[in-house]
Design a protein around this nucleic acid. Structure first.
Length: 214
DNA sequence: ATCCGGCGTC
DNA sequence: GACGCAGGAT
């Protein structure tokens, strides 16, 4: 059996049964970047409240966050959890953005993908998943996002080893899928849906759209 | 291996 | 009022 074909069939099945997820259609790239940091190890609904707080305070911009003290920022993003560490991480990113790209996201995304990815990974608090989420969802750059759901679903289905590293999983998808931003975007969004709804730590395989692929 | 914290569900 | 959940650093 052809691996690449199976990966595409899984995608098609998810798309047919779940429909397009249409992630982050109307929001600004900056909002997506901040969301990517705040959603680390937390539910998106928690992040929405934090984003709302920043927006209401008129601070949802590079300059706006730059002006906040660490404590002020931590209080605003409190609903997203881990708010003290995340305040440090958001600040670290903003400081880096100003020193490296004049606080300008467009300039940042004008950088070459691989170089920018390495640069993002050098910012304390930005790991591989956050970096790839920023690049794909805010920058529309062709990099595949791997997360806990991706790992769980594809290891359970026997496509990857349980102990696979982030970079191995990322390579697995990029080697077996056409290099397409829209496809990467939708694929990850669909996996999140499957992971939240069906492929739980305690399985719910019976009603899962992907049960035939086991 | 442990720490960092909130929200939704039961 | 428990318990379950999801990344990164140290």
């Amino acid at each position: 059996m052809n691996k690449a074909k199976a990966i595409l069939q899984i995608y098609q099945t998810m798309l047919d049964t779940l429909g397009p997820q249409q992630w982050w259609p109307g929001e600004t790239p900056f909002e997506i970047v901040i969301g990517a940091i705040l959603t680390q190890n937390t539910n998106w609904s928690n992040v929405e409240k934090a984003i709302r707080n920043l927006k209401t305070a008129g601070k949802l911009s590079p300059r706006g966050i730059h002006e906040l003290s660490m404590l002020e920022l931590a209080q605003l993003i409190r609903p997203s959890g881990f708010f003290n560490v995340k305040a440090k991480r958001v600040k670290a990113f903003i400081n880096w953005l100003f020193s490296r790209y004049e606080g300008n996201l467009s300039r940042m995304f004008n950088q070459d993908l691989q170089i920018l990815r390495d640069e993002l990974l050098s910012v304390k608090g930005i790991g591989p998943e956050t970096a790839d989420s920023i690049l794909l969802y805010a920058g529309n750059m062709p990099t595949f996002v791997v997360d806990a759901y991706t790992h769980r679903i594809f290891s359970r289905h026997g496509f990857i080893a349980e102990e696979s590293t982030y970079d191995e999983m990322k390579a697995f998808f990029e080697e077996n899928l056409p290099k397409d931003v829209t496809l990467y975007n939708e694929y990850h969004a669909l996996l999140v849906h499957i992971g939240k709804r069906y492929c739980r730590p305690k399985k719910a395989c019976e009603p899962c759209p992907l049960k035939d692929f086991l």
